[in-house]
C-alpha cells in the first residue's frame, strides 16, 4: 500500500487538476454557480426548521443552527458518495487507454466535495456569528480533526463503491437508497439526546440502542460536530400528551475515538479493496 500511495503522490497534479475540473464543470452552465451548493442546504434547513418547530413541537432556541451543524457534514457525506460511485465508470474510456493511478478518480470526487463543504462551513460561521450571535466555543479547534476523519471515512467508502460500480452498476442505486435510509439514522432532524431517552424508556434488555446508534461512525461524527460547534442545549418537545425534556449529554469521547478508528480502518480496507481490483477496470467489455 505504501508503494501505491507513493505512486498516487507522484500523480498529485493530476488529482488536483481533476478536482478543479470537477468544480468547474459542476456549475458551468448555471447562472448562480457555486451558490447552488449553499442554496440547497439553506432552503432544506429552513423547511426542516419550520416543520419541526411548528408541527413537531420542538422547543429549542436556534434550532436551525443545530440542524445546519449536522446537515452540512451530512451533505458532504451524501454528495461525495453519490459523485464518487460513478467516478470510475464515467471515465472508463480513459481508463482503458491511459495509465494513471485509478484511485485519483474517486478521490477527486471526494476532494471536490470537501472543498464545497469547507466553503459551506464558512457560510455556517457567518450565520452563527452574524445572525444567531452564538459564542464561538473553544472546542471549535477540533473541527479540522472531525473533517479529517470524516474525509477518510468517505474516501474509504468511495473507493469501495466506485470500484464495485464498474462491475455491477446496481451499486449506484443501492448507494442512493442506502443514503436515503441512512438520513433517518443519523442525528440531523433530531438530537442524540432523544436517542438516549428512547433507550431509557425501553425495556432493560434493549438498553444498547444509544451505543449501537453511535457505533455508526457517521452518526457519531455528526453528534460530535454539533457538540463542538454549538453550546449544549436542553431539547424540549411539546407532544400531544405531554411535554418531554431531554437534558443535554456531554460528548462521549470514547465513542468518538471508536468512530475515528473505524473511519481509518474503512479507509485502509477500502484502499486495499480498490487496489486489488483496479487493474481489472480496463478489461470490462
Amino acid at each position: 500500500m505504501i508503494a501505491e500511495l507513493r505512486e498516487l503522490y507522484r500523480y498529485r497534479e493530476l488529482l488536483w487538476t481533476l478536482v478543479l475540473r470537477e468544480l468547474r464543470v459542476r456549475y458551468k452552465n448555471s447562472y448562480l454557480g457555486f451558490f447552488w451548493s449553499l442554496i440547497v442546504p439553506l432552503v432544506t434547513v429552513a423547511v426542516l426548521t419550520i416543520v419541526f418547530k411548528r408541527v413537531m413541537g420542538m422547543v429549542i432556541p436556534n434550532y436551525s443552527a443545530y440542524v445546519l451543524a449536522a446537515y452540512l457534514p451530512w451533505m458532504y457525506f451524501q454528495t461525495a458518495l453519490l459523485d464518487s460511485s460513478q467516478s470510475v465508470l464515467a471515465q472508463i474510456q480513459l481508463v482503458k487507454k491511459v495509465y494513471f493511478p485509478r484511485e485519483v478518480l474517486p478521490l477527486a470526487a471526494v476532494l471536490a466535495n470537501l472543498i464545497h463543504f469547507a466553503l459551506a462551513l464558512v457560510v455556517f460561521f457567518v450565520y452563527l456569528l452574524g445572525y444567531v450571535r452564538a459564542p464561538l466555543l473553544p472546542s471549535v479547534v477540533l473541527l479540522p480533526v472531525l473533517v479529517l476523519f470524516q474525509t477518510l471515512l468517505i474516501a474509504g467508502i468511495s473507493l469501495i463503491i466506485s470500484c464495485l460500480n464498474v462491475f455491477y452498476e446496481d451499486t449506484k442505486y443501492i448507494v442512493s437508497i442506502g443514503l436515503q435510509l441512512m438520513f433517518y439514522l443519523v442525528p440531523v432532524i433530531y438530537f442524540s439526546e432523544q436517542v438516549y431517552h428512547a433507550q431509557i424508556a425501553s425495556p432493560e434488555w434493549q438498553r444498547w440502542i444509544y451505543l449501537v446508534y453511535h457505533l455508526n461512525p457517521i452518526a457519531m461524527l455528526m453528534t460530535a460536530y454539533r457538540k463542538i460547534l454549538l453550546p449544549p442545549i436542553t431539547v424540549q418537545q411539546v407532544g400531544a400528551v405531554q411535554k418531554q425534556t431531554f437534558a443535554s449529554l456531554p460528548m462521549d469521547w470514547g465513542l468518538l475515538a471508536v468512530a475515528c478508528v473505524v473511519s481509518v480502518a474503512i479507509f485502509v480496507l477500502g484502499y486495499a479493496f480498490f487496489n486489488k481490483r483496479k487493474w481489472e477496470f480496463a478489461e470490462q467489455p
Binding site: 481508463v95 482503458k96 487507454k97 491511459v98 495509465y99 487493474w279 480496463a282 478489461e283
Partner: peptide
C-alpha cells in the same frame, strides 16, 4: 497495446 500502455496487466 493495452499491456504496453500498462492499463492491463
Amino acid at each position: 497495446l493495452a499491456i504496453i500502455a500498462r492499463v492491463i496487466r
